[in-house]
Simulated assay, not measured.
Amino acid sequence: MLKQFGDEIWTADGPAVTAFLGFHYPTRMAVIRLSNGGLFIWSPIPLTEELRTEVAALGAVRHLVAPNSLHHLSIPDWKRAFPSAKVYAPPGLRQKRKDILFDNDLGNVPSPDWVDDLDQVLMTGNAITTEAVFFHIKSGTTLFVDLLQQFPAGWFSGWRALVARLDRMVAPEPSVPRKFRVAFTDRRAARAALERILAWPTQKVLMAHGTPVIADGKAFISRAFRWLS
């Protein structure tokens, strides 16, 4: 189930989840092994016994990260399976999931636990959600969860296929869906975050819902967010 994506980073694809109006979304998570040997779990998918075994073989799960307030459903199961792991909340999720005991909040500064391995920035100014975007230094990978998406051709049918096309969910390469573009009510804040992201030496781009970009990642991000300038 785990696939190596780069140096000390693996991905796993999960089952499709149903969102608003019956839209089905493919899911993906990432596992990053930190310099201290601990594992950083990004956007965890439903936990199966196979996945649990494969992850545990890589090291001890230390950090469970929901990158935005929409990617949280599997956090409780992972916490039960790995009770010593710390759980991190993006802006807005503490209020939404009061049943989850969070250890820390995600901000614009990396935690001391992963500062040698990851940088991060909050993409603020969006009315739908505030997303924590991460950069994995060793593999040169920038990780987006919902701000960049691309669905396979034929994934949607009927009226949903039309909506997906209008929403830029099925563009030739991953792009920012139209609903998220409209929801950026504070573009100055978003541009400041984007400036930090574009300063990273990105080679690859990983997202929860879309085809990973495996080369020229920095140029790709610049194209994908050109509308924001």
Rank of each mutant, 00 (worst) to 15 (best):
F5I: 12
L70F: 14
H136N: 00
A164H: 04
A161H: 10
G158S: 04
L64P: 00
T185N: 12
L147M: 13
L70H: 07
G37E: 01
F23D: 02
D119A: 11
L143P: 02
V170T: 15
T124C: 05
A60T: 08
A56W: 01
R191D: 03
S43Y: 04
S175Y: 02
Y25H: 09
I137C: 08
F40M: 07
L106N: 03
V61W: 03
P44N: 11
D99I: 05
V55D: 04
A12N: 10
P90Y: 11
T211W: 04
M123W: 05
Q95R: 12
V17G: 02
V65Q: 07
W78Q: 13
W114R: 10
I41M: 07
M169F: 05
P174D: 02
V170W: 04
I100Q: 05
P90W: 09
P110L: 15
A193K: 04
P44G: 11
A127P: 00
L93T: 06
P44I: 10
V133N: 07
A219H: 06
S111E: 10
A66K: 06
Q203V: 13
T129Y: 03
T202Q: 11
T129H: 05
L206F: 15
L143M: 14
L166Q: 12
F225L: 05
P15N: 13
A30E: 06
G154T: 08
M207C: 09
R94T: 09
A193F: 12
D119F: 01
H72K: 02
G154D: 09
L34N: 05
K96I: 12
Q150E: 13
D116W: 03
V205Q: 12
Q203I: 11
A30T: 00
V87E: 00
R187A: 08
A190N: 02
D103V: 10
V65T: 09
P15C: 12
I137A: 12
L47E: 06
P67W: 10
L228K: 13
H63C: 11
N68Q: 01
S84R: 06
R181D: 10
D105S: 15
R191W: 13
P201W: 14
W155E: 01
L58A: 01
R33F: 12
V145C: 14
F82P: 00
F5E: 08
D113H: 14
G125P: 04
D117T: 05
N104H: 15
P91W: 06
V182F: 15
N126S: 10
F5L: 14
G37Y: 00
V109N: 09
V115F: 07
S35I: 02
M29D: 03
W200H: 04
W155H: 14
L73Y: 10
T202C: 11
I41E: 00
P91D: 13
A66P: 00
E195R: 15
P212K: 08
A30Q: 13
S139N: 06
A193L: 01
V115L: 04
H24P: 01
E50Q: 08
W159I: 13
L118R: 01
G22F: 03
G125S: 05
L147F: 13
F20M: 13
Q120D: 10
A85D: 04
L106A: 04
A153G: 07
S229R: 07
L21M: 13
E54P: 03
H209D: 09
D146F: 06
F156E: 14
F40E: 07
L39V: 00
F225T: 07
S43L: 07
V65I: 15
W10Q: 13
A183C: 09
R226Y: 06
A171K: 04
